[in-house]
Design a protein around this nucleic acid. Sequence first.
DNA 1: TAGGTAATAT
DNA 2: CATATTACCT
Length: 656
Amino acid sequence: MTVEEIRGNMGGGERGNNNYDNFPIGMRVLAVDDDTICLKVLDGLLRKCQYQVTTTSQARMALKMLRENRDRFDLVISDVHMPDMDGFKLLELVGLEMDLPVIMLSANSDTKLVMKGISHGACDYLVKPVRIEELRNIWQHVIRKKKVEPKSESKSNDHDKSYQGSGESGRGQSTTGGNADQNGKCNKKRKDEEDENDENGNDNEDPTTQKRARVVWSIELHRKFVAAVGQLGIEKAVPKRILDLMNVEGLTRENVASHLQKYRLYLKRINSVQTQQANYMRMGSLDGLGDFRTLGGSGRYTHAALSSYTSGGGMLGRLNSAAGLSARNLAASQLLQPSHGQNLCNSGNAFAKLNPNIPPHASLIQGISASLELDRLQHTKSTAHIPLDESRLLTSDVLGCLNNSLSNVPNNPMLLQGNPLGNQHSLNMAPFSSDSFNTGVNGSSNWQNPAQLSKFQSSSFPLTESFINSHLPQNNVREAATTHLQNSPLDFSATATVSPPFEDSSRGEIQFRESMAGAVQSMNHTPSQAWADNKQRYTHNSNNTFGNNLISQVPIIGTASLSNENFGRRMDMSLISRSDRGSSTLVQHTEHDKLTPDSRIRSNEDYLLEPTKQQVGFSPPGYDSLDDLMSAMKREQDGGMLDEEQYGFDNYPFGS
DNA sequence: TAGGTAATAT
DNA sequence: CATATTACCT
């Protein structure tokens, strides 16, 4: 963005005597902190950066100043804890009313707070004491915002657009709705991709440009898409109608069609997973061979599975080999004993068996694991520690009982959002999935991630950090996911169910998100089995987060208590085993992990012993939302369950 | 013309 | 290599 553009975009108000020819210099910053010392320091630092600083120790005053003349400042940097007004409140109001970039400041680097800040629309979250280096770059938030602004398609879509749904009982589907304001603030949208800090001033933001930039299906966009599909009902969701419903300028029917194609593919895959479960259950074969043909979500994966079978030599063997990574570190690798392996799978089977009629849950769970998978996929990209074969191997074998085809899922976040939920569930799930989407995509090569996100990462944000940067072997992630899912699906459903009660949606979302993220992370840890190669960092924090959050949320379902206890126990163990673990390398830490196996197994057993309870707690009311998808799936499943051929989706209900 | 699917491009 | 785009067929 050029200086001129900045000028032009800078709200048009009188700039006073500001000179933007050397932009960052003179940027008008409003610093808010009730602690006058901090404020002073901050002021000093900001001035060192040659910003034009205004300070106030009262949030209300800050708000007043901002309201009086919203063009008076370019950026707000505010403490989180303030007596007269919560920093988040200020953040929210500012975001709502003047849409200035806001940077949160706090001595507390607690994950929750960071999450809350970012989720509420903060462009950045700085931890005190703030270093000047951090402040030197905050101007980029101003640029970023200004650049996103012009394109904002806000008004047309958000609330109003919905409900033109025909006879269809328009389900809730406020998926995006109000949050768009907050989130959108710092989220970049679709095609106006933007570069980080470049003062070069070479820009091309010419809206009239003919070249139809390839549509990037941002989370927002995808949400809309999903919302539209949900509204129409999966069966009636055809490109054109979706397009109408989405009401996104510049989007073509073709774009939607393409996305829909992918989406359907994705749905199928999910469905196939489900089928697999069923099949697996019926066949009950331990060697897994019989199922593999069935299990393959797609041709190539079937092959992969088969080949891995031959090389691995039977499921158990593979179980061992797959888990062998961790087995190294387990003195007595009990958890790799056949019996346990069997148990693991049986638990999955049991689960499936116990809940054959409650697909929604399955989907829920699969969704979660799929999200994990996305994470894994990313790791695959960025790290090449583990031979792909092995990870596959593990997928189809050890975890074959549940989610073998997940590795095939092209776009996992679809899963969670994918279900035409539209109601509270989607509300709850979406944030998580979008997060994982974000997270996942951030690391991918072709995604320009917003600065606040990268900042996010770099500021040691535990969850994100581990999500993005951990060099977790994919196997572990997956195994963890699956193991956990098999063992305590309840935790998730419970969590999801509990979320709504939170005061406001965004908060609920945040918490949910946290807990989910925590859960996910915990899954990484839970199986404990040393995960020797786990180079994760910042784990301690996240564990705390998880422990506090999830556990506090889950108990609503009475029957869940047992699981929760186990969960908690596992978390604790996780904490223990990790407490000493820094960012240094794995090998040395493996000793710690030896602590866990026993208890872990017991935990598993506990889970296994409680299938019925799980089931009970597992069928909360209000799953109507999932009906569309699920009924569709079910139909398909009923029709061709025993005929495996995952390829035979021609009769898939989504078809024309 | 629209939708679905497969091929191709990025 | 995954995913978006384009082409082609119904």
